[in-house]
Nucleic acid binder design. Structure first.
Length: 917
RNA sequence: AGGCGGUUGGCUCAGUGGUAGAGCACUUCCUUGACACGGAAGAGGUCAUUGGUUCAAAUCCAAUACCGCCUACCA
């Protein structure tokens, strides 16, 4: 509560966000505003943010998502929830390893040369040095996260959670050793997940080869884009319904370039319409072929090794050759043998490793897998029962569809940076191997009964650790975790659509599998009864919001290679975090993507500036006695009642929109209310009452309190979206509480809805606009104050116009406004007129009027009215409309028509005055 | 190939059955005591196409076209 002089001076005309934002973030942090505590008696509200890669820096997707997360957190905090938002980062196995290996390469070293232990040490060092960068970026965005609870997926407590998860699944047989075709990255020498594979259309060739029958009775033509895999073929398949091949099923083919014979098998995986209808089957080097091979019990010849070179199985001529060299050689040899039928140009969908850009080699290898089917069942059920809500709800089906066709999950990665698999191996007397779960060597020796044992070399897929993010962040598996008891299940998971399966689905499965509670009715909606009927599996979160993808102006995905990315930090520096957040929220609804252009941030920046200046105006007109308390109702003017009514509608709209994650609607409602209602009209209407020399002191005081009150409520409404500027202004206004962050969020008060005031101010605005329009249409300078008159068409209009006469005169720059019974005649001056709903306004324009100009103006207006009347009459002349439409609609149409007709009559009357003579 | 979105004024987008809206850009005017990052007044659209449902369709349904996203894959 500052004095008038202090608040008005020292505030610049333009809003300058940088210093203000820094100041408030530091203060909030120092005061512990973002800290939450279990068991305060308030209802819990909790979010665990999607942990960005520890190597990452803030991009537009992060900025959008974290603006949403923070706005929701702040909204709930103000609504009286114990609001907790936990930040963290993900160790990002392959990405981090990649970064550190690049650093090593600059020193001319490889990770193999430095060794596993030293390499991991370097990774830690890297993360200590750079890993917190994104946290500072979240701070500059204004995120109200609890920094005391920050999590990293390789913190010791988090590692404990992962080991416990692994143990449980391993002992239950859900984790198993399997041999399958995986996406192999020959550069990283590791399996990579599906999401780390990008397909790119490349020009290639389709080679048509002839495979002769072993008995010399002709040949079969097959086509391939990868000739080198020929060496690993185990069969040729054709569709069982394909008559061309039916007589030959079961016959053997002599596989060229090898001494093997392979069968012609019947499998409906072969599509008769493609090429020759016959397809070669290479089980060790293609996922579909692998599955086909399993169906038919075919051998799996691994002819390409992990380094991308041909193996011994490929034969002495090929061993050691790079796969692409081998490709050329196979083609040459086949051609020499006369077995190359033709070569076509062909567009190949080539799988590339996202990180290394190497062509992915589908490769048969031994890996650890999780059997997802049993885990998926409850995760399907909770979504079907509506216990987890997807927003937008179209994602519900997308989720269910994937879950119902779920496949085993390969969780081992041949990397060094990550969670090393807690399985130890030992040799059996017969030379085979056995394995057991163990946390360390001692446990391993006990479990395996052998001193001579070693830990599995592989680490876990990073998604394995992020799958337990919500409950592990809250303290699981610790026996006594107040946080877990109080804050779990969390309330919201908001993320990008491409990780719906990889991450969201896995969190649901993992959460349900590990977090169990004794049955209690209050938690019925939060989980599923277990099979034994004694416990409930608890969902990890209630709402899943899938936000839009932020694209560039042209609608392209932002990418490093295109160089079309926008750096949110750059936006924050230039426009402020508030403007950045506001512009993102304006565009965040249930849409699938956002075409982002900087113009949007500019607009949001203008909004902040408008807020700043309107507030400056209010502040400089307050005095020490202003309390900001709402004056008693009888003291309120029509305009006061009107703005309260508009404010109420806005409060309702904003709360309803936020509850549905319609950020765009909430933002729009706030923008329109503040700019169009509050600034354009209410402030203008209040000005006369503020002018000290002419105002009645009591009225002045009401106006001051009203302005302070409405502005203060508006700031609270805006705070979750634009936290900094609202705090800065709020602190200067009369208020109660330490910080706007914990001030109560406005709730609509139904009694403030005031239809009478809305109608009355509606007429006032219409009349003002009509006067301005007349002046402008006739090209009369806005400077001179003109004489005016108004004829009221009804009792209500009369009383409204009477009580707002001075206001209209002020807004329309009128020297006088008289209320008359009929149109003023020519003896009293040169009058032009314009009908509005419920009244007709007249302006005295001085000595001359261009008759033709005025006639043209009226004719133009009459023409557009005639069109409206025609439309309306046509509708009402239709008996079907009158009989079948809702009576209220018909009634409304009649009154609309009457209104137009009245305007038409008045204008026609006016036209006579200017018809010459 | 399948699934899902989108197509509304020059641009970016609101608008789910009853008189087509906003911001930016544009035209004209205004430095009037909060704001030129502003104010006032305008111009500009047969709501992608074709059918259907309805008294009434931008809005609901179907098909088509184009743009985009996700998933899987074509030997």
């Amino acid at each position: 509560m500052a004095e008038e002089e202090n608040t008005s001076e020292g505030r610049s005309k333009g809003y300058e966000p940088a210093a203000i934002e820094r100041k408030w973030y530091e203060k909030w942090k120092a005061d512990g505003v973002f800290k939450a505590k279990a068991g305060t008696g308030k209802p819990p509200y909790c979010i665990t943010i999607p942990p960005p890669n520890v190597t990452g820096s803030l991009h537009m997707g992060h900025a959008l998502n974290n603006s949403i997360l923070d706005s929701m957190t702040r909204w709930h905090r103000m609504r009286g929830f114990e609001a907790l938002c936990i930040p963290g980062t993900d160790h990002a196995g392959i990405a981090t390893q990649n970064v550190v290996e690049r650093d090593l390469a600059k020193e001319g070293l490889t990770r193999q040369e430095v060794g596993r232990e030293a390499f991991i040490e370097r990774c830690w060092k890297w993360r200590e040095q750079y890993g917190n960068r994104i946290y500072f970026q979240f701070e500059s965005l204004g995120c109200s996260y609890d920094w005391d609870r920050v999590r990293f997926t390789m913190d010791q407590s988090y590692v404990d959670a992962i080991i416990e998860e692994f143990r449980s699944w391993y002992e239950r047989g859900l984790i198993y050793r399997g041999t399958r075709v995986v996406n192999w990255d020959v550069k990283f020498q590791s399996a990579v997940s599906d999401i780390e594979v990008v397909t790119e259309e490349r020009k290639g060739k389709l080679y048509h080869f002839r495979y002769p029958f072993a008995d010399g009775s002709g040949y079969i033509t097959i086509a391939t884009t990868r000739p080198e895999t020929l060496l690993g073929d185990a069969a040729v398949a054709a569709n069982p319904n394909d008559e061309r091949y039916q007589p030959h099923f079961g016959k053997l083919l002599a596989l060229p370039l090898t001494d093997r014979q392979i069968p012609l098998i019947a499998d409906d995986y072969a599509k008769p319409e493609f090429g020759s209808g016959a397809v070669k089957v290479t089980p060790a080097h293609d996922l579909n072929d692998f599955e086909c091979g399993v169906r038919h019990g075919l051998p799996q010849h691994v002819v390409i090794g992990k380094n991308g070179a041909m193996t011994e199985l490929a034969g002495p001529e090929f061993v050691g050759l790079d796969r692409f060299v081998a490709r050329t050689k196979v083609v040459e040899l086949m051609e020499a043998l006369g077995l190359l039928e033709k070569v076509e140009d062909y567009k190949i969908q080539t799988p590339l490793s996202d990180r290394s850009k190497e062509v992915i080699e589908p490769l048969l290898s031994e890996q650890w897998f999780v059997d997802m089917k049993p885990l998926a069942e409850p995760a399907i059920q909770v979504v079907k029962e509506g216990k987890i809500r997807f927003i937008p709800d179209r994602y519900t089906d997308i989720y269910l569809q994937w879950m119902e066709n779920i496949r085993p999950w390969c969780i081992s990665r041949q990397l060094w940076w990550g969670h090393r698999i807690p399985v130890w191996w030992a040799k059996n007397p017969d030379g085979t191997l056995r394995h057991a779960f163990a946390r360390n060597r001692d446990e391993a020796i006990a479990a395996l009964g052998a001193e001579d044992c070693w830990q599995d070399e592989d680490v876990l897929d990073t998604w394995f650790s992020s799958a337990l993010w919500p409950h592990a962040c809250l303290g699981w598996p610790s026996e006594s975790s107040d946080d877990l008891d109080f804050f779990y299940p969390t309330d919201l998971l908001s993320t990008a659509q491409e990780i719906l399966y990889l991450w969201v689905a896995r969190m649901i499965m993992t959460g349900l599998d590990f977090v169990k509670r004794p049955i209690s009715n209050s938690e019925e909606a939060q989980g599923l009864l277990d099979a034994d009927g004694e416990q409930r599996s608890i969902i990890p979160f209630k709402d899943v919001y899938i936000h839009a993808t932020v694209l560039d102006e042209k609608g392209r995905r932002m990418s490093k290679s295109l160089g079309n990315g926008i750096d949110p930090i750059d936006l924050i520096e230039r426009y402020g975090a508030d403007a950045t957040r506001f512009s993102l929220m304006q565009q965040a609804g249930k849409n699938q993507d956002i075409k982002y252009s900087e113009q949007r941030t500019d607009i949001a920046g203008n909004f902040c500036n408008k807020l700043w200046n309107a507030s400056r105006f209010v502040l400089m007109h307050l005095d020490v006695a202003t309390t900001g308390q709402l004056p008693d109702r009888p003291q309120l003017s029509l305009a006061d009642r009107w703005i309260l009514s508009r404010l109420t509608a806005t409060i309702e709209a904003v709360n309803a929109s936020l509850a549905q994650y319609d950020m765009d609607d909430a933002t729009r409602a706030l923008y329109q209310f503040f700019w169009n209602d509050f600034c354009d009209w209410y402030v203008e209407l209040a000005k006369p009452r503020l002018r000290a020399e002419e105002a009645d002191p009591a009225e002045r005081s009401v106006a001051q309190n009203m302005l302070a009150y409405v502005l203060e409520v508006t700031l609270r409404l805006l705070h979750p979206i634009i936290p900094f500027i609202t705090e800065e202004i709020w602190q200067s206004l009369p208020h109660s509480g330490e910080t706007i962050c914990t001030a109560p969020y406005p709730e609509a008060i139904a009694e403030w809805k005031d239809a009478d005031a809305e109608a009355a101010i509606g007429i006032t605005i219409d009349a003002t606009r009509a006067f301005r329009n007349l002046r402008s249409e006739l090209g009369i300078s806005p400077a001179p104050k003109l004489q005016a008159a108004v004829v009221a068409g009804s009792g209500e209009a009369l009383s409204t116009l009477t009580s707002n006469r001075d206001l209209i005169a002020g807004l329309a720059r009128l020297s006088s406004l008289t209320i008359v019974d009929s149109a003023p005649d020519a003896t009293s001056g040169v009058w032009i007129g314009s009908p509005i709903s419920g009244a007709e306004v007249f302006l005295e324009i001085g000595e001359t009027v261009d008759l033709k100009k005025e006639r043209d103006r009226i004719d133009k207006e009459l023409a557009s009215i005639a069109k409206e009347i025609e439309r309306s009459e046509g509708k009402l002349a239709n008996p079907n409309f009158v009989e079948r439409a809702n009576p209220e609609v018909v009634e409304k149409e009649r009154s609309v028509l009457a209104d137009w007709q009245e305007k038409q009559a008045k204008l026609t009357e006016r036209r006579k005055v200017f018809s010459g003579s």
